[in-house]
């Protein structure tokens, strides 16, 4: 993989990432108040099985408290993605301002890689079902 200086639109995307993550953290203070009013998952109510995103609210609340263990317990996929989003959102603006190198091209989405991604998502869902989250 080769690296190069980021183009204008790539630096803008990095800054946007930072703004979005900052906005989430800023609005996060309202989540604990709102969370109690969120309905139970209708998919789980209807089928008895958790959906892929079941536990995401608990994950977000735990992450806002800084309790990574509880976040991983509630929904590991949401915990990893949420943490990556926020940590990346802190680093991305620095990357843009300092014009640090970015990959010349992202890895191609070959059929094999796509199959792995789908299998990973299904595995994450299966893990939620097996644990009865």
């Amino acid at each position: 993989m080769t690296f190069r200086a980021p183009r204008l639109e790539e630096r803008q995307v990095l800054l946007l990432w930072g703004a979005a993550a900052g906005g989430v953290l800023l609005l996060g203070w309202a989540l604990p108040g709102l969370a109690r009013f969120l309905p139970r998952c209708p998919f789980k109510e209807l089928t008895g099985l958790p959906c892929l995103s079941c536990g995401s609210t608990r994950t977000a609340l735990a992450l806002l408290r800084g309790d990574v263990g509880a976040a991983l317990q509630a929904n590991p996929l949401a915990a990893v993605l949420g943490t990556g989003f926020v940590v990346g959102g802190v680093l991305a603006p620095l990357w843009a301002v300092l014009r640090l190198p970015v990959p010349d091209a992202l890895p191609a989405a070959t059929p094999g890689r796509r199959a792995v991604a789908v299998a990973f998502l299904l595995a994450a869902w299966g893990w939620q079902i097996a644990r009865g989250i």
Partner: peptide
């Protein structure tokens, strides 16, 4: 702000 978050 919600628009910016939602876009990204």
């Amino acid at each position: 702000m919600a628009v910016v978050i939602g876009l990204f």
